[in-house]
Simulated assay, not measured.
Amino acid sequence: MEESINLYELTFSEKDRYVIITNAYPHEDQLYRNGFIHRRVKAYLDEGLKVDVFVLHPAYKKAEKYTYEDVPVYRGTEQHLRIFLNHKIHKKALIHFVNPKMVQAIKETNSDLPIITWIHGFETEAWHRRWFNFLESPESLRKILEMSDDYYVSQLSFMNWFYQTTELDTTFVHISKWFKEHIAECDARAESKNSIIIPNVIDDNLFTFIEKPAEMRTKVLSIRPYASRKYANDLSVKAVLELSKRPYFDKLEFAFYGDGKLFDQTVEPIRDFENVTIHKGFLSQEKIAALHKKYGIFLCPTRLDSQGVSMCEAMSSGLVPISTDITAIPEFVKHDVSGLLTKPESPTDIADAIERLYYNSDVFLRVSKQASQSIREKCAVDVVIKRELEIIKG
């Protein structure tokens, strides 16, 4: 439970602390807010790092503190962040989803504080990268065009400065080479100095590999958000409709899990199929890992991804991912080696990939093992956290 606090009166019994500044963090009432950051923090704590989290958001008018799974979390406005940083007990600031207010607070209170900034996605993208989200109505298109003259221009102007400035000691962490070169630096029109590529961590201790029997090639799982068209859930649904025309369709089993404003309308066309189950709602990481044990194929087409974390988690569990040969996905899935990649905007290609696995159990078994092995080599806790700690402590 959160409590209102007086930041001026805060006392810290230990020095050598690190502060993580972000725009959202899990809470008992909001379990899915940047959960991937929390997984990092837990791993840092396991390695002996002392970490505080500060959530900067205008919705928190009062300074508050709560504890989530042993992690101390503070939240408030930009002014509260300034007061917090003025204690000057942190060795470095670790930023996720950076915005000008976070950096301004550091400049005004402790400009010598080294900064490590993770670049994830929308904070460094031009508006047109997500064109597919604005086709629902003239109103949504009008709104984003208005924002393109204000929010996106100012944010990208800030990123242009931030990537290049010598006023601050900053290291940038990009989660994929494709995203760094083709989106982050391209849209900001600047090269990010002092940068490194480290993917998001996958909890391979939770998403464990158990060898799949050949029969699981008929069991297809989709666990996706439905808040944006970037996840291409409509293509998954159309692939099921395409497969329904093929003679072996009733031998397949599909499960769709997720939630968001697009959920009901997206899955409506496949609700009446007896071999399709639909589950509206979000799942804990533990429940997702348990579901992975019951299925063999993970359906995850996309229109824009800087990594595809849920896909990587499924790969760690040994599911064969069927995704799209687009954006950063090929950095994490090699076609016909650790997964199957399909053409963009092609439900038929997705259906053909499922058909290939149905008729070729040897391909399914081979790719299942290689998917788990390859993603662990890239994204396992030991691999990623070791690299992150090297730059955090360095």
Rank of each mutant, 00 (worst) to 15 (best):
I83S: 14
Q155K: 14
I115Q: 01
K107E: 09
V201R: 10
R224W: 08
I183A: 15
E191M: 06
V19K: 01
K386N: 12
N200L: 15
K42I: 13
H87T: 01
N23S: 15
K65P: 06
E313N: 03
S346E: 11
E167R: 01
C379M: 13
R39I: 08
Q373P: 00
E331G: 07
G281Y: 10
D150G: 07
L141F: 10
S368K: 07
F132Y: 11
D336Q: 08
Q370S: 11
N160M: 01
V367S: 06
E181F: 02
E286R: 03
L113R: 11
L319I: 02
K369C: 09
Y358N: 04
L243N: 08
H57W: 14
D336N: 14
T327R: 06
I5T: 08
S111T: 08
I278G: 12
I202T: 12
V73I: 11
F282L: 01
P138V: 13
K378Q: 14
V383R: 14
H27K: 12
E47W: 05
T166G: 02
W161P: 04
A190N: 06
L283W: 10
A371T: 03
S228W: 06
T124V: 15
G296S: 07
D150V: 13
E268F: 10
K294G: 05
S157F: 04
D112E: 15
N133T: 03
P344E: 12
L81H: 04
T22M: 00
I106F: 10
D349L: 03
L357T: 00
W118P: 00
R217W: 09
K88V: 04
I350C: 08
S176T: 04
K180C: 06
Q104D: 15
D325Q: 12
F273E: 11
K177C: 03
N133C: 13
L389A: 03
L299D: 06
R356Y: 12
H279A: 03
V98T: 12
D149G: 08
V173Y: 01
E313C: 09
L81R: 02
A190L: 05
L221W: 03
V333I: 15
V173C: 03
E9A: 14
N205Y: 12
L10C: 09
L221Y: 03
T302F: 00
R366I: 01
A314R: 06
Q155C: 00
K261F: 08
E377H: 11
M216L: 15
